[in-house]
Amino acid sequence: MPRSLTFYILIAQRLGIAAVTLVIVSFAVFFATELLPGDVAQVLLGQAATEEAVAGLRQAMGLDEPAIWRFLSWLGGLATGDFGMSYVSNIPVAELISDRLSNSLRLAAVTTAISVPLALALGIGAAMWQGSLFDRAVSILTISVISVPEFMVATLAVLIFAVWLNWLPALSYGAEAGSFGAMLKAYAMPVITLGFVVSAQMIRMTRAAVIETINTPYVEMALLKGASRRRMVLGHALPNALGPIANAVALSLSYLVGGVIIVETIFNYPGVAKLMVDAVSTRDLPLIQSCAMIFCVSYLLLITIADLTAILSNPRLRR
């Protein structure tokens, strides 16, 4: 479809903003982990270390160099796949992360595949039958899920499915999952929990986006042409709500980032988030930096996709 010049300018602008944000975010991460804690060499060696030992380590780690230079070389390292060495285990961070990352991505992918279609159907349905019993039930459920912490959703899921119904194991990822059934069971609890958290946001935002377009003069016009409720919502409101809905989907998926930290911890799931939480308790700074950057980049990616879809779906930018 032909696009106007404004359209390309807006796209370029969004990408530019994303790039600037990435730089600011990575600086914040670097600043927090390298400069806030004080002297890393001192931290590593403990209070009892001699001055010479600390100075030696500091030089060995390149901590004598100016902060901005260290920031740039760190950033360059990230870009070329060199994530540094773990302070605690002395293994390259990249090696520690690679397995864990695929585990986390799998969890996110399965959750997305299940929750997006479900949430869209429920959100659009609730908007279509606004004020009905169905709508109210969905609203109460979503508000409840949004109002409680992620770990409570997880706790309730365990209580219901593992303790009372005894369908699923409470702590998922124990031994190697052998059969398909076992794998399903292993994923079920984390996916159910994450799915609830992500869908609740998505349903709320989708419903709001569709209702906003239903209350426009052109939908009233469709009513006055004799259109059915279905046609008004699906034919007239929905095409105009696509931008906001895509935005809602991407924004809700960014809740995955927060949710996954809790869920991996509570279910002992060997993903990046669990790795990071463990790294925080051992103050393994290079590992924390890398994990934090992975999360920030994926979050930023989703937000940028949300913005771009909003631009893409704006009919005024078509020629």
Binding site: T216, P217, Y218, E220, M221, L223, G226, N240, R316
Partner: peptide, 18 residues
Amino acid sequence: RGTEVSYVPQSAAAAFNP
């Protein structure tokens, strides 16, 4: 609606689906 009685709105700009 539309076949026996039809409607011309005050603001067509708002009544057309963008």
